[in-house]
């Protein structure tokens, strides 16, 4: 078991033997998954494979029935709630873009910036330009600088996806979990998003859930295929996509 313990200490995210079931349905079944520091990983798999549930578990939204979920070598994520986990350095983008529609793009980013999170500091927080540099930086990375003063509700679907990714960046997490970032995007937007994620991956660890195989190919990273709540296949995209089991359950012949 030495390999496991080195895995734990060296990895950024470490899941071992994780199971969770809803009313008898095993959404996650003895799942093990290791992500190294600085790594970007793509997760693919058919609907109901447990991809989003896995994110729910990592971010503290769902408590697993069994198994270990360790972040950054020492933090047991099953003992913390969403807010704690977010503050530890895990950012999450939802499947459906979720931004603060009645705030401007700038305020969206400003709310995400790492800073005080308590009620009183927030009340007396001087909103003068403490985070100005960071905001500009994030807006530049996410190609939203020209929309800075716009209401988030007026953004296009793709822009909202980027804004949400931008909010994750503003949080400055160690790990970004990105759920279907290109769903509903045009091809041009998809390409742009792939580039954006590769840029981000230079400074952060990233897990991307995606169905779009073209997009996964563009990311050019190691791929994990989930099926019925556990890992079906793992490796390069070529390796995974030629795995007969993956072809069987997911890609189709």
């Amino acid at each position: 078991m030495t390999t496991v313990s080195t895995d734990v200490t060296n990895s950024l995210l470490y899941l071992d033997g994780v199971s969770v079931s809803f009313d008898g349905f095993k959404a996650i079944n003895n799942l093990s998954f290791v992500l190294n520091h600085g790594e970007m990983r793509a997760i693919i798999g058919p609907n109901g494979a447990g991809k989003t549930t896995m994110m729910d578990i990592v971010t503290g939204k769902t408590r697993p029935d069994a198994g270990d979920v360790i972040f950054d070598g020492s933090n047991d994520l099953t003992k913390h709630d969403e807010a704690d986990i977010a503050m530890m350095g895990i950012g999450r983008k939802f499947q459906k873009p979720t931004v603060f529609e009645s705030h401007t793009v700038e305020d969206n980013i400003a709310l995400a910036l790492s800073g005080p999170r308590g009620v009183l500091p927030m009340l007396f927080h001087n909103s003068s330009r403490t985070g100005e540099g960071r905001i500009r930086e994030v807006l530049d990375v996410t190609r939203l600088a020209h929309l800075r003063g716009q209401m988030a509700s007026s953004l296009s679907h793709g822009q909202k996806q980027w804004l949400e990714i931008g909010m994750l960046l503003a949080q400055n997490p160690m790990l970004l979990l990105v759920d279907e970032p290109v769903a509903g995007m045009t091809d041009a937007e998809t390409e742009e998003t792939a580039r954006l994620l590769r840029d981000i991956a230079e400074g952060h660890s990233v897990v991307v859930i995606e169905h779009d195989m073209g997009f996964v190919r563009e990311l050019d990273v190691r791929v994990t295929c989930l099926h019925e709540g556990s890992v079906l296949s793992d490796g390069t995209l070529e390796h995974v996509s030629s795995d007969p089991r993956v072809v069987e359950v997911y890609l189709g012949r």
Partner: peptide
């Protein structure tokens, strides 16, 4: 009008988002 007020509106519009940003 405070920073907190913006957070309130954020909670109103997307509570889960604020949670995953580390707010309570």
């Amino acid at each position: 009008g405070s920073h907190f007020g913006k957070l309130m509106i954020a909670v109103r519009d997307a509570e889960a988002r604020t949670r995953f940003l580390g707010y309570r």
